[in-house]
Amino acid sequence: MSALVPVKCHVNGRVVETMVDARMTLADFLRHELGLTGTHVGCEHGVCGICNILVDGQTTRSCLMLAVQAEGHEIRTVESLSDGDKLHPIQEAFMEEHGLQCGFCTAGFMMAICDLLENNTNPSEDEIKDVLGGQVCRCTGYNTILRAVKNAAAKMGSAGA
């Protein structure tokens, strides 16, 4: 029912070159073929944003992209954020501000926030909300996530200064 197609891309800095089922979503490829299960799937119809990853640095729904479309692109997932036992400033900020409860949606938020803060370490409240508005969280009510973004922006801003 489905053909295998070659795909070559970079995932978290490493080259991945393999055959993939033509109809497989990128989310399923990352999770079930590469074992990168930190990316979670919430709706599989592009609304909830939980499966957000970065494709060439841009926030992308991994459930709406096929694995074959990753050909030639740079993919980053939550597994790329921390460095050994050192958490990324965004992860630290989420922990400090209690920006997560069940933690299922958190990777999606962090990747979208990564996209934001790598391009703008001093975002306005509206700019932050524009990014957060693309995703749902059912636990936190967003107040602490908003604080986590501001905290992370301060951390990343001062690190880059």
């Binding site: 999770r31 990168l36 299960t37 930190g38 990316t39 979670h40 799937v41 997932t77 939550v78 597994e79 954020l81 921390s82 958490l87 992860q91 989420f94 922990m95 400090e96 209690h98 997560l100 069940c102 933690g103 299922f104 958190t106 990777a107 962090m110």
Partner: peptide, 20 residues
């Protein structure tokens, strides 16, 4: 309001949810 002991694993994508 101490930090949560469960967070590091959740934040790094290591917590094993059932589909993992």
């Amino acid at each position: 309001g101490i930090r949560r002991v469960e967070d590091a694993s959740l934040l790094t994508g290591r917590t094993p949810f059932i589909d993992d």
